[in-house]
Lab assay of single mutants.
Amino acid sequence: KNAAKIVNEALNQGITLFVSDNKLKYKTNRDSIPSELLEEWKQHKQELIDFLTQLES
């Protein structure tokens, strides 16, 4: 999976991924984040940080 797909899947579940101080963060109104999503974010962390940083610049 690529970073764009992961970010879109998160958005579809009401979760916004973003970068703050070079760290991957998220915002959501959900009570909890599915563990498989958290695991996927960890596996692709640097790719996600790079992707989101490019989007914001």
Score class of each variant (00 low, 15 high):
residue 1 K to V: 14
residue 1 K to W: 12
residue 2 N to I: 12
residue 2 N to A: 13
residue 2 N to T: 14
residue 2 N to Y: 08
residue 2 N to E: 13
residue 2 N to H: 12
residue 3 A to Q: 03
residue 3 A to M: 11
residue 3 A to I: 11
residue 3 A to Y: 05
residue 4 A to Q: 13
residue 4 A to Y: 12
residue 4 A to P: 06
residue 4 A to C: 08
residue 4 A to D: 07
residue 5 K to R: 14
residue 5 K to F: 10
residue 5 K to S: 14
residue 6 I to R: 03
residue 6 I to N: 01
residue 6 I to K: 02
residue 6 I to M: 10
residue 7 V to Q: 03
residue 7 V to L: 06
residue 7 V to I: 13
residue 8 N to E: 15
residue 8 N to T: 14
residue 8 N to A: 15
residue 9 E to Y: 07
residue 9 E to R: 08
residue 9 E to M: 05
residue 10 A to Y: 02
residue 10 A to S: 05
residue 11 L to S: 08
residue 11 L to I: 10
residue 11 L to A: 15
residue 12 N to E: 15
residue 12 N to F: 10
residue 12 N to P: 01
residue 12 N to C: 08
residue 12 N to G: 11
residue 12 N to R: 07
residue 13 Q to F: 11
residue 13 Q to I: 10
residue 13 Q to H: 12
residue 13 Q to R: 08
residue 14 G to E: 05
residue 14 G to I: 01
residue 14 G to Y: 04
residue 14 G to D: 05
residue 14 G to W: 03
residue 14 G to Q: 05
residue 14 G to F: 03
residue 14 G to M: 04
residue 15 I to M: 03
residue 15 I to V: 07
residue 15 I to P: 00
residue 15 I to W: 02
residue 16 T to Y: 12
residue 16 T to M: 11
residue 16 T to D: 05
residue 16 T to Q: 09
residue 17 L to E: 01
residue 17 L to I: 05
residue 17 L to R: 01
residue 17 L to G: 00
residue 17 L to T: 00
residue 17 L to W: 01
residue 17 L to P: 01
residue 17 L to A: 00
residue 18 F to D: 02
residue 18 F to P: 01
residue 18 F to E: 04
residue 18 F to H: 05
residue 18 F to A: 03
residue 18 F to K: 02
residue 18 F to S: 05
residue 18 F to R: 02
residue 18 F to L: 06
residue 19 V to A: 05
residue 19 V to Y: 05
residue 19 V to E: 02
residue 20 S to V: 15
residue 20 S to A: 12
residue 20 S to Q: 14
residue 20 S to W: 09
residue 21 D to R: 06
residue 21 D to H: 09
residue 22 N to P: 01
residue 22 N to T: 06
residue 22 N to R: 06
residue 22 N to I: 03
residue 22 N to C: 08
residue 22 N to L: 06
residue 22 N to M: 08
residue 23 K to A: 10
residue 23 K to M: 13
residue 23 K to C: 09
residue 23 K to P: 00
residue 23 K to E: 15
residue 24 L to E: 00
residue 24 L to A: 01
residue 24 L to D: 01
residue 24 L to P: 01
residue 25 K to V: 12
residue 25 K to Y: 13
residue 26 Y to C: 05
residue 26 Y to M: 04
residue 26 Y to K: 01
residue 26 Y to P: 01
residue 27 K to A: 10
residue 27 K to M: 09
residue 27 K to Q: 09
residue 27 K to N: 08
residue 27 K to F: 08
residue 27 K to H: 13
residue 28 T to Q: 02
residue 28 T to L: 03
residue 28 T to S: 10
residue 28 T to G: 06
residue 29 N to I: 08
residue 29 N to P: 06
residue 29 N to V: 10
residue 29 N to K: 09
residue 29 N to S: 11
residue 29 N to E: 15
residue 30 R to I: 07
residue 30 R to L: 14
residue 30 R to Q: 10
residue 30 R to F: 06
residue 30 R to W: 06
residue 30 R to S: 07
residue 30 R to A: 08
residue 30 R to D: 05
residue 31 D to Y: 06
residue 31 D to E: 14
residue 31 D to C: 07
residue 32 S to N: 14
residue 32 S to H: 13
residue 32 S to C: 09
residue 32 S to K: 12
residue 32 S to Q: 11
residue 32 S to E: 11
residue 33 I to E: 02
residue 33 I to Q: 02
residue 33 I to T: 03
residue 33 I to D: 02
residue 34 P to N: 05
residue 34 P to E: 05
residue 34 P to H: 04
residue 34 P to C: 03
residue 35 S to D: 12
residue 35 S to G: 10
residue 35 S to Y: 12
residue 35 S to T: 13
residue 35 S to W: 10
residue 36 E to C: 07
residue 36 E to Y: 11
residue 36 E to F: 11
residue 36 E to R: 09
residue 36 E to V: 09
residue 36 E to K: 09
residue 36 E to P: 07
residue 36 E to I: 11
residue 37 L to D: 02
residue 37 L to Y: 06
residue 37 L to I: 07
residue 37 L to P: 02
residue 37 L to F: 08
residue 37 L to C: 04
residue 38 L to H: 05
residue 38 L to E: 07
residue 38 L to Y: 08
residue 38 L to T: 04
residue 38 L to K: 06
residue 38 L to I: 12
residue 38 L to S: 04
residue 39 E to Y: 07
residue 39 E to L: 11
residue 39 E to A: 10
residue 40 E to I: 14
residue 40 E to T: 12
residue 40 E to V: 13
residue 40 E to Y: 09
residue 40 E to G: 04
residue 41 W to R: 00
residue 41 W to C: 04
residue 41 W to N: 00
residue 41 W to K: 00
residue 41 W to V: 05
residue 41 W to P: 00
residue 41 W to M: 07
residue 41 W to L: 07
residue 42 K to H: 13
residue 42 K to Y: 15
residue 42 K to T: 11
residue 42 K to M: 14
residue 42 K to I: 13
residue 42 K to W: 13
residue 42 K to Q: 14
residue 43 Q to M: 14
residue 43 Q to A: 14
residue 43 Q to I: 14
residue 43 Q to K: 14
residue 43 Q to L: 13
residue 44 H to Q: 05
residue 44 H to Y: 14
residue 44 H to E: 02
residue 44 H to W: 09
residue 44 H to C: 06
residue 44 H to D: 02
residue 44 H to K: 05
residue 44 H to R: 05
residue 44 H to M: 08
residue 45 K to R: 14
residue 45 K to M: 15
residue 45 K to Q: 15
residue 46 Q to H: 09
residue 46 Q to F: 07
residue 46 Q to E: 12
residue 46 Q to A: 10
residue 46 Q to C: 07
residue 46 Q to R: 08
residue 47 E to L: 11
residue 47 E to F: 05
residue 47 E to S: 08
residue 48 L to T: 01
residue 48 L to I: 15
residue 48 L to P: 00
residue 48 L to C: 01
residue 48 L to D: 00
residue 48 L to R: 00
residue 48 L to K: 00
residue 49 I to D: 01
residue 49 I to T: 04
residue 49 I to A: 03
residue 49 I to G: 01
residue 49 I to P: 00
residue 50 D to V: 14
residue 51 F to H: 06
residue 51 F to R: 01
residue 51 F to M: 03
residue 51 F to C: 02
residue 52 L to V: 02
residue 52 L to S: 00
residue 52 L to W: 01
residue 52 L to P: 00
residue 52 L to I: 06
residue 53 T to V: 12
residue 53 T to E: 07
residue 53 T to N: 11
residue 53 T to A: 07
residue 54 Q to F: 09
residue 54 Q to N: 15
residue 54 Q to E: 12
residue 54 Q to R: 13
residue 54 Q to S: 15
residue 55 L to Q: 14
residue 55 L to R: 13
residue 55 L to T: 12
residue 55 L to D: 09
residue 56 E to Y: 10
residue 56 E to V: 12
residue 56 E to I: 12
residue 56 E to H: 12
residue 56 E to Q: 15
residue 57 S to F: 13
residue 57 S to C: 09
residue 57 S to W: 08
